[in-house]
Design a protein around this nucleic acid. Structure first.
Lengths: 192, 192
DNA sequence: CGATTCTTTGAAAACAGTCAATCTGTGTGG
DNA sequence: CCACACAGATTGACTGTTTTCAAAGAATCG
């Protein structure tokens, strides 16, 4: 179980056996079956979650009941509502499983302790946070400036491994276009 | 000069006279006149910048030459291309002044040293980064799910102090709609 | 006051959304 | 193994919103 995570984390920095042991000791594994929720709107997030296996999404529901996907996550990605985790406020987001999933989880206090006591872990997480921030800025720019067509092709290029695992209607939701529009965009290209 | 910053930073945490002296000693003030650039695309960002006075924007230019504003910033806000600052890669963004500005700047090495040596400073910056991340997620959600009308009114509500300082066409650029559409959205409401 | 910048308006065209129906593929239970 | 149900994808017709282009009207600044 923990091995997958160890392979991941040792690629992001150097850790002693003792440090790895600390991480393992405080982690908990959990199964989340397809369509089950890891978190629902209104709940307070108290764990950091790492995907060992499977695929999840984080989304928000508007007044008309439409879902808007903020993030997909697959193996070797963290999926958490950092906002609720950091502030202690109720979450605005749902997180559910698009496939049967296996997670590695840390409680808030344990995670904070790891960050304090293992400098290399802190650096790894820091790097991840920076990368996320860059990706988020890029995505905002793309959402502001790209057409439906450009958004779609950019998504395939940027996340090929997500593209072939999730239904198209969810990609449409992620891109901020209707599934019908996405469908048409795809078929335009078949005849050009 | 430094007083404005001291007032700000002491509101975010507790600092000793010596710590404040360290911050002051490593800071540099700089004037940027309206329409002048603090940073242009392709340059590497090597400073963290705090606005003492004035208003700036960070934007990106697409292939058609259209500007897309990612951020506005006014007094007591940081304005930097964190991406280029952290990675050392050339920036994708322009930063320029919408009014005559007065900045307080720290070089990369000095800023890193402050973060290491002044725990309360680290915590303050951390809080700021978290707040920015939350705001960015909210904005992405709004961009995905709101109509032009909703985006506009939400902007006024969220950033009233920015709203009455920048031209409407820039708010349009920020919201991802054309200035004509924004103009129409505004005048619709005058007769409802 | 003239020049520049910003905002508004109109008309046409492009684009995307909605609703409804159909088609496709997958998996489940009989 | 087949039939059926179900989720997902596509298509057509229509509607509504937003963009674009062009022009004119405010507002601001030197």
């Amino acid at each position: 179980m923990f091995k997958t995570f160890r392979d991941y984390i040792t690629q992001t920095g150097s850790f002693t056996a003792k440090e790895l042991e600390m991480m393992a000791a405080t982690s908990v594994t959990r199964q989340v079956r397809k369509k089950q929720f890891l978190q629902q709107e209104g709940e307070v997030s108290i764990s950091m979650n790492f995907i060992l296996k499977g695929c999840m999404r984080m989304y928000r529901v508007d007044e008309q009941g439409h879902e808007h996907i903020l993030t997909f996550a697959i193996e070797n990605w963290w999926i958490s509502d950092k906002e609720s985790f950091m502030t202690g406020n109720p979450s605005k987001y749902f997180i559910d499983a698009l496939e049967d999933c296996q997670l590695l989880m840390w409680q808030k206090e344990d995670f904070g302790r790891l960050l304090q006591q293992i400098p290399a872990f802190f650096v790894s997480i820091q790097k991840f946070v920076v990368a996320k921030s860059i990706a988020l800025h890029d995505r905002l720019y793309e959402t502001l400036s790209y057409s439906a067509d450009e958004k779609y092709h950019n998504f395939i290029k940027t996340y090929p491994d997500v593209f072939n695992r999730v239904p198209l209607q969810m990609i449409a939701s992620y891109l901020g276009v209707s599934r019908e529009t996405l469908s048409r965009v795809r078929n335009q290209h078949a005849y050009k």
